[in-house]
Design a protein around this nucleic acid. Structure first.
Lengths: 346, 346
DNA sequence: GTAGCTGGCTAAACCGGTTTAAACCCTCAG
DNA sequence: CTGAGGGTTTAAACCGGTTTAGCCAGCTAC
């Protein structure tokens, strides 16, 4: 009943074999008689033996952990609905395999590269998730040069050596626009995310093309920054337009909810005077007044798929070609914030 | 220019000394001539040597990592404003010391203990943060038996072997009540968090006692669950009361914002018909309409302090008595959602 | 002149696994 | 009877650090 946890040597002596044999047995490698394997397994069980991650890490040069670097300012990150659910999905995969998730939150800028570099050089992780892809994303080259396996969330623009797990934002965005068109809207504006982000431009491109398909042009496309404060400002600019839009499509819920507040503060009634749609279906979307029409993806599933793909890549050890994964696209959730515009002026 | 990273042995041969000497020099231990130390340091520098975390972990039996277990359902966690900022604060401390943060998101219930157990038994971390303390929290005993150092966020009820980092919620709550009393409210209700949580009951106790100090009793105290959905329901119950409250104090912003939506949907004007106050000052609080009166803490600073305290505990190795830390209390942020009640009926 | 001490350094064990090369045992063929 | 060969098992090296015990040179003390 010693306090010390048993090592593989303890198991070996108890089973009357060598360390090596124990290692073989526990890793299910061939070359041992079945009776011996059973005896070793029983001994390990009796002793309550659990392998030491540290020793294993050292000898096989693996960390048994995956990394996620989140590049955001704390206050922006603060109410992001994506990452918590994504992380939960990742963990659901890691838990089975005894892996851990190492998280790094870095502020934008120089810190970012340092964050990945640290994870790689300290050997903390066997691979990382690459989220919030940007155009000409420097991280792809960085990770290649660091030799750190990665999975990208959605597909980067240029060629990428990494498998991608994709959840297409465009169908959802298009569905929003079509929904508004059906309601009779013709003057529709968009509040986009920062153009540096691939998913931000993907959404705004989808917005524009959906309108174009109906022979329309956007009233305006405002670039914003995914924050509530940014949403407010963009909304004010849009509402000040001579030809005020009857509907605004936001690239995320936070900007949309803030925009909703701004519209109400300006004396407008949503949805009568202005229809508003978001993106994410964050928790509050359903409960603000009026309930926010939005687009729902499944970040939990996203996390699962990303973790599985990254593990395939790591297990394959460079030899296997891991295919991209396409997740079911986000879909439209219609609530009360969108309706037929009250003051029709065709 | 080999691809392999240099080991301590490479440094040793280059400096013409033994491995041990290199180790001594790099850890700044006495017993080496200054000239030798300089030579070794120069050699290490030339080679771009960085210590292997894995080897160090194995030989000194440390993980050089801290752990955070978040026990929440993904969708509840999803819009929590506390953790992201808290984590950022933690990281700001860890980055300097080359430590990593290991995150585990577990669903409530059996999983929780397993989560801590895994972190401990796999030797993933040197200590953990204990957040969302509950009454009679079983985790304190669990961690004690696992021998895992910890820091509690706020002080648990019973005796605890762990240092506590505290941010008192009560002054903020009291300030909210006093603010409402000054505005002339007399019928004030509270929507509390789950009574299992220490911080939930702390806030509701502060609420009740602040009213009592003015010789009043709460109209009602509804127990809810910190979610938007729960906030909606609690609000509906309160609004259905024969003696409808003129103000509702919520234990967090999410419930408050949802409650705001519920009130508006019920045809009430906030703040004229009903004043609403939250807790957290989450990003959206400022931007909903009307802006939410709330209480602002500093989760980033909380994270910093918790990480520093936990590291003191770990470095002290059980010998040192680490003092509790008291952070500046949360303070009231007054916005438009609170005002003098319109229909006075003294 | 030798014992004793001390500062400076090395060799080797150690952490707890994995992995390789070799040894062992047994059977069967030549 | 010997050699080959296959199935089992072991001893030892290895991963890359830390740490302990001990060696050696030079100085002081008696």
């Amino acid at each position: 009943m010693s306090k010390e946890r048993p090592t593989i040597a303890d198991v070996a002596t108890r089973a009357g074999v060598s360390k090596g044999a124990v290692s073989f047995a526990l890793n299910g490698r061939p070359g041992l008689a079945q009776t011996t394997v059973d005896r070793i397994l029983a001994a390990a069980d009796d002793l309550g033996w659990r392998p030491s991650n540290r020793a294993r890490s050292l000898s096989v040069s693996k960390a048994f952990a995956l990394g996620l670097v989140i590049t955001r300012d704390p206050e922006v990150l603060s109410s992001d609905p994506f990452f918590p659910a994504f992380i939960a999905g990742v963990e659901s995969v890691l838990a089975h395999r005894g892996q851990a998730l190492v998280l790094q939150v870095v502020t934008a800028g120089k810190d970012e590269a340092a964050g990945y570099r640290r994870l790689a050089q300290d050997g903390r992780v066997d691979g990382v998730f690459l989220s919030d892809l940007r155009h000409e994303d420097p991280r792809i080259e960085l990770l290649t040069s660091l030799g750190l396996p990665a999975v990208t969330l959605n597909r980067p623009e240029g060629s990428s050596p990494f498998p991608a797990v994709c959840l297409d934002d465009r169908p959802g965005t298009i569905a929003v626009v079509e929904h508004l068109l059906e309601l009779g809207h013709r003057r529709i504006a968009h509040v986009a995310g920062p153009p540096a982000f691939v998913h931000a431009t993907a959404r705004s491109a989808a917005f524009v093309s959906a309108l174009a398909a109906a022979g329309l042009e956007p009233v305006a496309v405002e670039s914003s920054d995914f924050t509530a404060a940014g949403g407010i400002e963009a909304t004010r600019r849009l509402l000040a337009l001579p030809e005020r839009p009857t509907a605004i499509v936001y690239a995320n819920d936070r900007m949309a909810i803030a925009g909703l507040g701004a519209a109400q503060q300006a004396g407008l009634t949503v949805p009568d005077d202005l229809s508003i749609a978001g993106f994410d279906d964050s928790e509050l979307a359903e409960f603000v007044h009026p309930g926010l029409t939005t687009v729902r993806a499944d970040p939990y599933r996203f996390g699962e798929a990303a973790a599985e793909t990254l593990n395939q890549l790591i297990d394959g050890d460079g030899d296997v070609d891991v295919p991209d994964v396409e997740l079911p696209p986000a879909r439209l959730i219609i609530r009360r914030s969108t309706a037929t515009p009250l003051l029709e002026e065709t």
